[in-house]
Design a protein around this nucleic acid. Structure first.
Lengths: 333, 333
DNA sequence: TTGAAAGCGCTAACAC
DNA sequence: GTGTTAGCGCTTTCAA
């Protein structure tokens, strides 16, 4: 590509001015269809590709959508991203993304950096940003969507679910299913505020029914199947009489199941395991894991949709708050 | 953000010209340390954030790194992305990414679109791009790294492993472990060229030892645990005498394991299951799955590192080809 | 060591 | 309907 074709080249080739070419290519209303065709023909012939850099600098608005997630090793966020990418595919918007590793300061830095690109919209995970970042976000002039979590105050738009309530709902469902001796196993509660909320809702709902949490084991570090396995082993060694364990998520719960299978523990009759997310994989497991199904992909799509709506609407539709209801599935058929 | 601060503001505040401010901020050599400090002080005081759009337009080179992967629902690519993001964190480069859904035409479109951003580098998955895209890529003036696959001709740099050989190695290891009646189960071979290569290497290595593939079941659609479970059930129903099944990857193999566990099949003694990737999760399973451990994260980091090297070096280091050797683990302790 | 002019490729705002 | 002018915010000349 010796010399990238510019609008000027197209205009020259079509025998019109740069402005007319620009208008024609963007489909502005006031261009005669004759010139429009001339210009389009010239553009395709030259293989003209617009320069979004120049475009954005001129309009002070890029077609970039910033997306910030805490982690990618967790399949859940990968699915959310897929939903986002899905919805933006073919719209001309480009997603740029950042991974915070659950570090609020890293998040602030990443967002700050994204802002310098003058994005058309921003999607960030959760509602628990640092105060400085919240303030910064509330003063931007493009749509901001906070996803996954509804427990807290949103800056602008918000798509997700109440994790506190999800935890409480699960507690009620498990009690209704006859469980009484509860254990809890969690990973990364130091940084995953949503897992903390679920645990809190869970414990509170139990207490409201006069049932204590009999045992608990938490660990720093990211959640993983193997962590779940080891922690379950330790928890059960000290508390063999539990009839139910609530986990910070499905991954950890699967580790618990694998331990139980090895130990020939009767799941779910003797011990019911409950996670969170409703990973597809669960349906294939040799024994059931109770879970709350969350629409990850849909959350991503909805967030993207919301941004598109804000960008297309003449009149700003204002902040929205879209709540999804996780569906509890105890897996007891 | 009423009026975003520009370089002109900083310059004015520091009492110098725009040019001097620009040079000072970029750390150009020929600026007196006195003015440099003045400018830097003014910049931080005003909260100045450079505009990468203008910068890129001017230099005709952005700080964007394009990353194209076939899918995100597969944890493998999420891990590669994590590695890439890791390495670029704090370098000032921004990754923009696209998901092709294993569609070569979508890939061509996405890359074309990325090129218009004048990225500083590009990372694409595999070496099997459409000819038109290959040609396009070979003529760009920034580093291009193809990742994951080494079986084919690279456009520029290449980081990954030979899937053909990985399949063959696994076949040899399984034969050495005494297996003789082989089955194969695979998903999405219509689009996942790397899985196809592994299967091909596997079958060929078996043949070289005079062992045929006794049974095979493939299906369109993306790989998943549940697909693996169902397909294994069907395969074993017709071929109960298999003593080993090779899967297109670990996900599908896990589905197979779950089926076997339900059926009380003795894994691995009666039936050995083999996948590919070496997912962390495998170590927690109640029965072993043979696998080839691939360094996903490391591949991502290496690709990023390669780009950084090309961008920093005065003299172009030229195309590199970095091969990783997957480590086979039969899980038979 | 510093500054002034010109321009990256595009578009908003006016003329014609 | 179409062209002209003047930027967007930065950097690359080149001159001082």
């Amino acid at each position: 590509m010796a010399h990238t074709k510019t609008l000027a080249d197209v205009a020259a080739a079509a025998g019109v001015s740069k402005m007319t070419a620009s208008r024609a290519l963007r489909g502005a209303p006031d261009v005669s269809s004759a010139t429009r065709e001339k210009v389009q023909e010239a553009a395709t012939r030259l293989g003209y590709v617009g320069n979004p850099l120049a475009h954005s600098l001129s309009t002070k608005r890029s077609d970039l959508i910033g997306v910030v997630v805490p982690s990618l090793s967790n399949i859940v966020f990968a699915e959310v991203l897929t939903g986002i990418a899905d919805r933006f595919a073919g719209t001309g918007y480009q997603t740029i993304f950042g991974v915070t590793d659950y570090d609020p300061e890293a998040e602030a830095l990443i967002v700050q950096n994204m802002l310098s690109w003058h994005p058309a919209g921003l999607i960030v995970t959760g509602v628990d940003q640092m105060p400085a970042l919240r303030m910064r976000l509330s003063s931007v002039e493009f749509p901001v969507v906070q996803i996954m979590d509804l427990d807290g105050e949103a800056v602008d738009c918000c798509v997700g679910l109440s994790h506190t309530r999800a935890g409480a709902d699960m507690a009620r469902a498990l009690v209704a299913a006859g469980r009484r001796k509860f254990g809890y196993v969690g990973c990364g509660l130091g940084c995953d505020t949503r897992a903390v909320k679920r645990r809190k809702g869970f414990v509170k709902a139990l207490e409201e029914r006069g049932i204590p949490l009999s045992a608990e084991l938490t660990a720093p570090g990211f959640s993983s199947v193997s962590a779940g396995q080891k922690m379950t082993e330790r928890l059960l060694a000290k508390n063999p009489d539990l009839d139910c364990i609530y986990y910070s998520n499905d991954d950890v719960a699967m580790g618990g199941l694998f331990h139980a299978l090895k130990q020939q523990i009767d799941v779910p009759d003797a011990l019911l395991l409950a996670g969170f997310n409703g990973l597809d994989m669960l349906s294939a497991l040799p024994a059931p894991i109770a879970t709350s199904h969350t629409p990850r992909r849909e959350i991503g799509q909805t967030a993207a949709q919301l941004i598109l709506k804000h960008l297309s609407d003449e009149d700003d539709p204002g902040p929205s708050r879209i709540a999804f209801e996780p569906v509890i599935d105890l897996g007891l058929s």
